[in-house]
């Protein structure tokens, strides 16, 4: 039973990575299995106890027990990725990415980050080099007050 959950989690970690990264060369990056991954700069993650993470709950027809499960941290060439699953009523109700690779300057150059990152989640976004701004349509007058206008004028 636990095995099912963790195999789903491993798959999800892989999916997150597949969706997360595409190099500027257009190369599709496949998740690297932990046991063959090149040694990462980070300290080696200790194997996650597969018995932890589950909570007791009701078993439904799907064989999934309600609760929240944390997947093992999967090492990839970009850093560790960890995903958690919430099972509710025997069905997967939520997928959370609890750990994803830090974006260092090199990664930022070669990777396309998967999801919009809230500024509050990142340390550097306030000073980030924003190239374009997406927002609800502004009028010609509104443009003059917009951040896009400032970017347009700040030619490099």
């Amino acid at each position: 039973m636990k095995k099912i959950i963790y195999s789903i989690l491993a798959t999800l970690s892989g999916l997150v990575l597949l969706f997360s990264y595409r190099t500027s060369l257009g190369e599709e990056i496949s998740p690297v299995p932990a046991d063959v991954a090149a040694p990462a700069a980070e300290s080696t993650p200790t194997p996650t106890d597969q018995g932890t993470g589950g909570t007791s709950g009701t078993t439904r027809g799907s064989g999934l027990v309600d609760g929240t499960y944390a997947g093992q941290s999967v090492r990839t060439r970009f850093g560790p990725v960890q995903v958690s699953l919430t099972v509710s009523g025997g069905a997967i109700s939520a997928v959370d990415v609890v750990q994803y690779p830090d974006t260092n300057s090199r990664d930022r150059q070669i990777n396309e980050r998967a999801i919009p990152q809230l500024v509050s989640e990142t340390l550097d976004a306030q000073s980030a080099d924003i190239h374009m701004v997406s927002g609800a349509t502004y009028t010609s007058e509104g443009y003059l007050q917009s951040l896009q206008s400032a970017i347009d004028q700040a030619q490099s």
Binding site: L25, Q109, A125, A128, I130, H131, V133, Q145, S146, L147
Partner: peptide
């Protein structure tokens, strides 16, 4: 193709003009 470039897109804060709430990278 192959260029060392990623468009960093700011998503405007809908309640605070001129403020970016989130960013997303697009090639």
């Amino acid at each position: 193709p192959g260029a060392d470039w990623v468009w960093r897109v700011g998503i405007a804060d809908p309640t605070r003009p001129g403020v970016v709430l989130a960013t997303v990278d697009v090639v």
